[in-house]
Design a protein around this nucleic acid. Structure first.
Lengths: 218, 218, 218, 218
DNA sequence: GATGAATGAGATTTCATTCAT
DNA sequence: GATGAATGAAATCTCATTCAT
């Protein structure tokens, strides 16, 4: 009775998939139970309310993005390297975990104001990492953009958008997509290409390391 | 009884605003009626079902995007000019008509398969215009991208994303946002800057010309 | 404003057809308006409430049945002749005016108690005519039935049932159906066949005379 | 989630009573819930849609009529015996289970075409049993009717009509009604009375055996 | 841990009817 | 005479959630 129970893997996985496919309000609790192989009453042994479940999914996802970004920044010696890493990590995460990242990006509005606040704080913390890299590069003369904050917004929209169209086994290989986005991003920022940056494989390992292989894939 | 009556301006405007803010499934019919200043029964005097209303909004919006893009392509002598025009027009439309463009971009999943099909066809028609411009530029040697179709996807996500964060009267002026996106886009495509291209004002006029000033603003 | 307006031909005809096909509660007022070629608001120039319309239809139909039965009894010299006439008249009316007789037979329950009472009185008046003919024949020794009142009920159900299955132009000609029912009825009552009774044509003329050719046919 | 749950006894009983008394369209879902002693939401725990409930009622009723008729035909050595049995069984069923038989006879039109088809097939199967008995009797010279198919229609309408007027404890005892209808039916068909046929008690037992004493009585 | 039963509130949509024009 | 606009009430059905077993 003290705190809401933590959703187990099956429930989370079903919720992530359904919230991504049909939206939070478009997903019924019985639908969710069916997908998890449980009755709707049993569902409540594994979670608090439907909103609790959404919060939990978002929190976990943003925590992981922050962890991954932190590792990237630690290991990157320059703004160009940092931006290359942030973009590739972000793109790989949005490609490999399409559903959960889509949920974070589209269902903020479904949260009540009180529940939304801490989630938005996490998201802002993450986006600030990007902005400060851009500013450092701009200050160092490595980047030239008309407006750093517009650049940050444009970059993030572009990279997050991968979750909208990437399909594993589709026309574009993951490494290709990640590297192309890094290339496009650096070009956007006016940075010269740097052949010495780590290739996509490095960031794919980083992302899979952070996410582990829980059942929430997809 | 023959065809569902055209929802009048107030109903459409209320629907666009609410669907954008809370999602299709997150918007109740009574909420919609309140926002339109009608009773929920009267609402049905002006529309078919809630889904009809969504389809109508999407269709109108995509028709206008296609019209605007057609005008841009007609008047543009080169791939660089065309891309500059497509990006600025798209960005201006997504900034001035945030709500309706957001609805088009996020609520496709709320449509039943039968209703979705023709809408997706319109969207694909629009995106194909972008792709063929990229391909022409690539063929002409003006653009150099690792992968044209990834570039198209990345560009569109970036430019559509404006609807997620632009606020009139906010930190960024509309003309600045449009031109910055054009600049970033051409940089992404590896094209040299061209100071002779039409400035944002031209495309703002084009967009307001196409959209008119009906009640659906926002 | 004083009394509810009399429904005109088109409205009555549409109502009779729809009430018969879909039931009173199964028929919507807009459906009715469509069928009559009017708007639902205009409908109310021609009728009172939906229930008024039903009452009107039933009253008219029962009045005509009573008129026809009165003519039959006047001209019939014996219980056998009377029963032959009642049956044939009833069958012809239920065949030629399927819809309106079905409505009378099945929608009594849709009336409020106050409106039902006078209609039931008319129906009882009509059925009493049948019962008294059976009793006269039983008293005269022409008929032999185990129970006159069960016989009346059985006879009327059988003859009214024609409205459930007769179709003009179908497998059975009207005259044949009427005469067969008269034959079966007299057999049920234990009466010897009488070749001198008027044939179906006589009663078809009687019925069409009473009903006239208003627009309520069918 | 797989198949609509079987409505339990109380829901079925309430539905049968209300559909018979007020018609399918005349019966509201809350009314039904009240009669079953449930909330309208709980109702849906026990049934699919209102139409599913109607289909279920009709199917069950027709299945039982077919079962009973099959037993009658098996045990009847002659067309006269068979017809006597069919009529008495039918009459007893329509007297003891007025409501459910009335629903079958009057609410077919409330079904959508897809749901109606299999129900009509069952009804036709049942009516064909009657027709073939009449034809056998006619071929054997036991019956003499002007038209066997009109005779079948007339007979069935007469016997089904019992559900419209019979009341247990009313003026007419069940056995009397059943035997009277058998007598009238055989008279209609021109068959000589046969004192050796089973009396009503036999068929009352047959019917109560087939119907059991579930909660759907009335 | 699991679930059938239950429900108040609310979903979307239709109802019959009125009225100003 | 005709109708578009309007509506309170009610229609059927689903919602997220609770609880006794």
């Amino acid at each position: 009775m003290s705190r809401p129970p933590q959703p187990d893997g099956r429930v989370r996985a079903a919720a992530v998939a359904l919230f991504a496919a049909k939206g939070f309000h478009g997903t019924g609790i019985r639908e969710l139970a069916d997908a998890a192989g449980l009755s709707s009453a049993t569902l409540y042994h594994y979670m608090g309310t439907k909103e609790d479940l959404l919060v939990d999914i978002m929190q976990t996802s943003l925590d992981r993005l922050l962890t991954a970004a932190g590792q990237v920044l630690t290991e990157s010696p320059s703004p160009v390297a940092a931006m290359n890493g942030l973009v590739q990590t972000h793109v790989v995460a949005h490609a490999l975990r399409r559903s959960e990242t889509l949920v974070v990006d589209t269902e903020l509005r479904a949260l009540s104001p009180e529940r939304r606040r801490p989630i938005v704080a996490l998201r802002d913390e993450y986006e600030d990492l990007w902005e400060s890299v851009i500013e450092k590069g701009q200050a160092a003369g490595t980047f030239q953009v008309p407006d750093p904050s517009v650049a940050r917004l444009a970059l993030l929209q572009m990279c997050s958008g991968v979750a909208n169209w990437y399909t594993s086994g589709g026309r574009h290989a993951l490494a290709e997509v990640a590297e192309t986005h890094a290339h496009l991003s650096l070009a956007m920022l006016g940075a010269a290409p740097d052949p010495g940056l780590p290739p996509a494989g490095h960031y794919i390992r980083l992302v899979t390391g952070v996410w582990g292989d829980d059942a929430t894939a997809g």
